[in-house]
């Protein structure tokens, strides 16, 4: 019988594996890009992941929990715990420039930075992710998923989605 070598799986391995999980609704961003994985702790063969939701009613949340579990079990962990943390509340301000550019390339206008009030945050003109024109208007305050609104570009005459500022 072959001897099974118990290999220490490092924290870096765990983060690397998690960065390979895509958001099911915005596949260009990983859960790590989205900054919804708050913390990862490794103790022997047990991994504990702190996950924070984007929108509370997001139907992808359970799916993401399962993906995390499966990914880390495949890496060799015996036990994977996913803890849901609401505080501090997730904000789109956490998205880095690289993630924002990935959204643009995918055809989604990135979220505006948060201002003192929501109305204030939504005042600035939205730039069309296709042609980069600012001749755009809000078409619908709500969109195909909880995290998006629908805009229309007068310049290239296309509808596009915009990530809601949260």
């Amino acid at each position: 019988m072959e001897s099974v070598e118990v290999q220490q799986i490092t924290l870096t391995d765990a983060w690397q594996a998690l960065s390979e999980i895509s958001d099911p609704e915005i596949p260009v961003l990983s859960l790590v890009d989205l900054k919804i994985i708050r913390d990862v702790r490794v103790e022997g063969a047990t991994a504990t992941v702190e996950l924070t939701p984007t929108f509370l009613g997001c139907p992808a949340l359970d799916y993401m929990k399962n993906e995390i579990r499966e990914k880390l079990l495949a890496l060799g962990f015996q036990t994977v715990n996913v803890e849901l943390k609401l505080s501090p509340a997730w904000s789109t301000d956490l998205l880095g420039e690289e993630a924002r550019e990935k959204l643009r390339v995918f055809g989604i206008a990135p979220p505006e930075k948060r201002a003192a009030t929501l109305a204030e945050s939504l005042k600035k003109p939205v730039v069309c992710p296709y042609c980069r024109s600012s001749e755009t208007r809000l078409e619908s305050s709500f969109g195909p998923t909880l995290c998006k609104q629908i805009y229309y570009c007068e310049h290239c005459r296309q509808s596009f989605e915009r990530f809601k500022t949260l």
């Binding site: 929108f55 509370l56 009613g57 619908s140 305050s141 709500f142 969109g143 195909p144 629908i150």
Partner: peptide, 21 residues
Amino acid sequence: ILEEDIAFSNIAQDEIGHALV
């Protein structure tokens, strides 16, 4: 109208998500 259909469907989903919390 379609926009309101989308709006109230979204609002419904949000509220039910809040209920879950």
